[in-house]
């Protein structure tokens, strides 16, 4: 026993072996991302693709400024990436909040009433399959203005996962809990707050998490075709029009990063909620 302990201790205090073991965590992603960037770099330098190389994001002045000064504001559309992002996030916030309210509300209704569910389910399943970009022209026709149309596109993209998951969550309330409510002759208000919402919450959050990603995808589609609005989507479109390819690449990276942060944020919220269950 003692000898085994000492060898184990010796092994774990050895800094080299510690390093070796932790490489298992960081080495593969480092190598993967690194080799991707390297291949890109080589392809760009040899002229096989027209995209600028990753290093050029720093060597080129426009993109370097955008990276290092995200907070500048020269009025009009000429703003730093931070402000562009905030404008987009603001729209997402509005559309997404609306989608959450409507999605949860309608989801609970159709979850509780199978009749209503049967009536509208085909419609929901159909609308769910329509791509965000396809909604843009309809939104513009409907609202005539860019801002409400953009919010509508976000809303209509984000609402379905929330609605469908909420309805499922309500349907999945265990019969035991329903029986308890029945036997106690619980008022509907108390049933709603004490049984329905807590029970369906994990499902609702799954819907919300899927939707935040979709909403962020939709904003780009919405903004690209709405000229003259501040936002990360139009920023890319504008850069494309003016042939600033480096800016496009930078914008894309920026969008990916924000999307990742939003998703992580919802995942963290989700674990917090389910930990409370």
């Amino acid at each position: 026993m003692v000898s085994i302990n000492t060898t184990r201790k010796g092994a774990s205090t050895n800094p080299f072996s510690k390093l070796l073991r932790s490489t298992g965590n960081w080495l593969p992603p480092f190598l993967g991302v690194g080799s991707f960037l390297l291949v890109w770099q080589i392809l760009s330098m040899t002229g096989l693709i027209a995209l600028p190389a990753p290093t050029s994001l720093f060597t080129e002045e426009r993109t370097r400024n955008l990276i290092f000064y995200p907070f500048y504001d020269r009025g009009g559309l000429d703003k730093g990436l931070f402000w562009q992002t905030m404008a987009s996030l603001g729209r997402v916030a509005q559309g997404y909040t609306l989608a959450a309210l409507v999605g949860i509300g309608v989801g609970i209704t159709i979850g509780l009433k199978p009749g209503i569910n049967r009536a509208f389910d085909p419609l929901f399943q159909f609308l769910r399959m329509v791509a965000p970009l396809a909604w843009v022209p309809i939104a513009l026709v409907l609202f005539q203005k860019n801002q409400p149309a953009a919010i509508f596109v976000i809303f209509i993209t984000a609402v379905w996962p929330i609605l469908i998951n909420t309805a499922e969550g309500v349907r999945q309330i265990p019969q035991d809990y329903r029986n308890v409510a029945l036997v106690l002759q619980m008022s509907s208000r108390r049933f709603f707050t004490k049984v329905l919402i807590p029970s369906a919450l994990p499902y609702i959050f799954t819907g919300l998490r899927i939707s935040i990603g979709l909403a962020w995808l939709a904003i780009i589609a919405a903004e690209i075709v709405m000229p003259g609005t501040v936002g990360i989507g139009f920023f890319i479109w504008d850069a494309y029009q003016q042939n600033y390819v480096g800016e496009i690449v930078l914008g894309v990276i920026w969008i990916g990063a924000i999307g990742l942060v939003l998703d992580r944020l919802m995942a963290w919220l989700q674990t917090r909620i389910s930990a409370g269950q």
Binding site: D176, Y177, N179, V180, K194, P198, G276, Q277
Partner: peptide, 9 residues
């Protein structure tokens, strides 16, 4: 009930 049916939250 057999499976207690307590509200877990």
């Amino acid at each position: 009930f057999q499976n207690y049916s307590l509200l877990p939250w």
